[in-house]
Design a protein around this nucleic acid. Sequence first.
DNA 1: GCAATAAGTGCAACGACTCAACTTTTGAAT
DNA 2: ATTCAAAAGTTGAGTCGTTGCACTTATTGC
Lengths: 211, 211
Amino acid sequence: MSDTTTDTAPTTDTAPAAAPAPQGRRERKKAATRKAIADAALRLFLERGYDDVGIREIADAADVSTTTLFKHFPVKEALVFDEEDDVEAALLAAVRERPEGQSVPAALREHALRSRLLTADGDPRFAAFLRMVNDTPALRDYRQGMWLRHTDALARVIAEESGLPADDPACTALAHFALEAPRAAQDHDDPRRAVSRAFELLESGWSALTP
Amino acid sequence: MSDTTTDTAPTTDTAPAAAPAPQGRRERKKAATRKAIADAALRLFLERGYDDVGIREIADAADVSTTTLFKHFPVKEALVFDEEDDVEAALLAAVRERPEGQSVPAALREHALRSRLLTADGDPRFAAFLRMVNDTPALRDYRQGMWLRHTDALARVIAEESGLPADDPACTALAHFALEAPRAAQDHDDPRRAVSRAFELLESGWSALTP
DNA sequence: GCAATAAGTGCAACGACTCAACTTTTGAAT
DNA sequence: ATTCAAAAGTTGAGTCGTTGCACTTATTGC
């Protein structure tokens, strides 16, 4: 059998958030195989690259059938982004619980800069992970797709916090743009500066829209 | 043989731009089969939906082999977005040749509102086409992917027109956001208003950045 | 005319993903 | 304790997009 690593897959999130109650034996086993699959996948991907590892190979390494694998993960890309649970909660919290007097887009900027997408320093394992994602088009796209799914929730919070009507498209726009900012910045030589500058645009624009 | 339709595939563009010189017999034949494939594909797609038509079926309908099909179109999605040539030129021109005194983001807003993504009225064939694209995730994503490929070119033009340094990330940001605006707006009940509002955000933000 | 080149074919295959039928495990009710 | 239904897993065949390879046919420039 392969080693039972205690490694947690890298998260884009900030807070670890202690694991809740895995009660029944059933759910524990299920979680176990799920983890076995995700671990095997991540290991193989990092060793040889995402595109050079097949589904069957991962299934074999985790000692399950490919059908079982797909019952845990809807598509191949999902194997890479496991354990991304409370990213949305953190995102919304960053806006709701922002410091007194800070604007909404400023809070989003801080959250973006704080995120591990830019601050990969220190952890070489995570750095390798990030490099893999950024070098694989399929993974970049998938990640952005997941990210954008938070648009509506974020737009609602923005509306609440700013007093604008809940259906004002400006809220959706700000949410969407804020979520796209990292992507818009990532091809620059200095991504942090690029993100900041993108948010400057949003901040001054937003201040003009909210009296 | 199937009917040789003279229909031109719908374009997101504005100007038809008369076809240039198809000289050799070779290139004419090549263009012919290409058109045969695209026509067959579009017809089948509109009849039964994008996901319910297979590549092999399209190839059969166009009376070519699947290998030939893929020599003309890199992926299945490309069958839908044929003849989208000078979209980029039109986009850049909209900025460069904007009316005196109009801001860059305002020009982009006008261009977006002018585009057939929102003004599908009148042509029911095109309306059906649009509906199909918007109802098919794979197509929406592909379209947005193509669209975003113009980011760098647009950013360069924006830099030129605004006097900002060519590598100022703000230019990339504006370009990226402007290209994302239609997508951010398309889930709203009134897309035109949503686009306008999204651009309001960009306009006031941009005016603060450019003295 | 003749070779070089490009278009097109046929077929077999690969990898991601699905489906249907079947076995095993587990949670719980009796 | 026994029984039963749901859930987890397996197996194997199949679909679908896409690619590679070896091969034929047509067109072009000389």
